[in-house]
């Protein structure tokens, strides 16, 4: 189900922890699986659990507890915008309005062409550079203005 490259990456994570503590790598393994497959289906979660030799429920608990895992398909680019207080003071509301108008979708929706999904996010620990968003969890874009947003969207093929 996962490519050899992804499995090698998971093995590298497993090696960080003591022997018999493979469960410690489950957060990374689910992240790696999500990057490769776009989201975590029940089959993917069980596959990861089997690979790490842990009960499926243990992987399920993690996948459902942490909010950066996607348990349903999302668009090719998931844009998560922080809307917490510091970002709101620094203009998150207008950034969200602009994004929603430009993409024609609200939070937790995906554009009809499957390209963009929009999520409301909690604090990303980067408030000095707000308002901000992440692209597919891992790439952060900061100090959002209409111009910056236009540039970000134009750069996503």
């Amino acid at each position: 189900m996962l490519s050899p490259a992804a499995l090698t990456e998971i093995d590298r994570e497993v090696a960080k922890y003591p022997p018999l503590r493979k469960q410690s790598a489950v957060m990374s393994a689910l992240r790696i699986a999500q990057i490769e497959l776009g989201w975590l289906s029940p089959e993917t979660i069980e596959y990861v659990a089997n690979y790490l030799e842990i009960p499926a429920i243990a992987a399920w608990e993690v996948a459902t507890f942490y909010n950066m895992y996607e348990l349903k398909p999302v668009g090719k680019y998931k844009l998560s915008v922080c809307t917490n207080l510091p970002c709101t003071l620094m203009g998150a509301e207008s950034a969200v309005e602009y994004l929603q108008r430009k993409l024609g979708i609200g939070f937790n929706e995906t554009t009809p062409d499957g390209k963009f999904s929009l999520k409301m996010s909690e604090c990303m620990g980067s408030c000095g550079e707000g308002p901000l968003l992440t692209i597919n969890n891992h790439k952060m874009k900061v100090r959002l203005t209409p111009e910056v947003i236009d540039e970000i969207l134009a750069g996503l093929e």
Binding site: R21, Q23, A25, V26, E61, Y66, N67, C123
Partner: peptide
């Protein structure tokens, strides 16, 4: 070694953080 969170504020609490390194909620 570096271990990443994946979206849970409560893991900043030290024992929740330990649970998380152990691969749990």
């Amino acid at each position: 070694h570096a271990h990443h969170g994946y979206g849970a504020y409560v893991c900043g609490e030290e024992t929740a953080l330990l649970e998380s390194i152990e691969g749990k909620k």
